[in-house]
Design a protein around this nucleic acid. Structure first.
Lengths: 143, 143
DNA sequence: ATTTGTGCAAATCGTTTGCATCTGA
DNA sequence: TCAGATGCAAACGATTTGCACAAAT
């Protein structure tokens, strides 16, 4: 299940593995994207952002393919989608239980590990529903 | 400060008052929108949604004006903007301290009053930042 | 050989903007 | 009167889609 080594890097064979076990064909583009996404610890990125990064790294890939890949990765449970401000969609490589600071001035997010942050006093849920996820976003501005 | 009577209705003079004290000219369109928004207790709505509702109610108003008004109301502190899913922007007539259930299947939100729900264990903030707002969104799916 | 993925450009969706016209103070 | 508001249509940015071509099994 864990495809990352302790130093935060991921080797190509491991990436191919990760994609295969997610039921995704390890194509050149997906391998490149996965390497960028999972090769350097937890990160939060947007499609456009990743597109530029890929091009800077010399990877030939279209924006449409990036969107496809990000959604496929999300469905496969490799990424988590974050709603922040209604304009762009962020993707988080950390799919574990955690929350976020959001720095409005920079459009940047910082992870808050789950153990420290707690949400208590959730009222009874409406009939026939269950909690899919609890999202906490702590919005920060300059002092 | 409080422009609503206890039964949740708002009279036209009160709406005009509300707009004036918010520094907004009480135009025909803004009065109509404010009546729809604040005339029936707390609600969560989108621009498109409000546009249809206004037209059903026989109010002549353009979508652009709705967007303008929603943003002006938000800046004036009469509304709160909610980021839910990156596609549409929701506006909440309840500007007090509270949080939300979000029912994914219906795209509908339910208020959670502040006193019951608590977020604890917030880590130290980055240097020079302060908390602007803590948003909690509890996403619900069918059981 | 067959299935699946990719790239491109056009289409779509929610939202914003420019500008001529109206309206409230 | 005249700053401020409105409506319309065109512009916009992010995202999705249709389809011919290419790559993976």
């Amino acid at each position: 299940m864990n495809h990352q080594s302790t130093d935060g890097t991921v080797s190509t064979p491991d990436i191919i593995d990760m994609l295969r076990s997610a039921g995704l064909r390890p194509t050149r583009q997906r391998i490149s994207l996965a390497a960028l996404l999972f090769g350097q610890g937890d990160r939060h990125t947007t499609a456009e952002n990743l597109y530029e990064e890929a091009h800077r790294a010399g990877v030939r890939i279209s924006l449409a393919t990036i969107y496809n890949a990000l959604h496929q990765f999300t469905e496969a449970g490799l990424l988590r989608e974050l709603a922040v401000d209604g304009t762009r969609t962020y993707f988080d490589t950390n799919t574990g239980d955690h929350q976020h600071f959001f720095i409005e001035s920079e459009g940047r997010m910082i992870d808050i590990p789950a153990p420290s942050l707690k949400v208590t006093g959730i009222p009874n849920l409406p009939e026939g529903k269950r909690v899919a996820r609890v999202d906490v976003m702590i919005r920060l501005v300059d002092e």
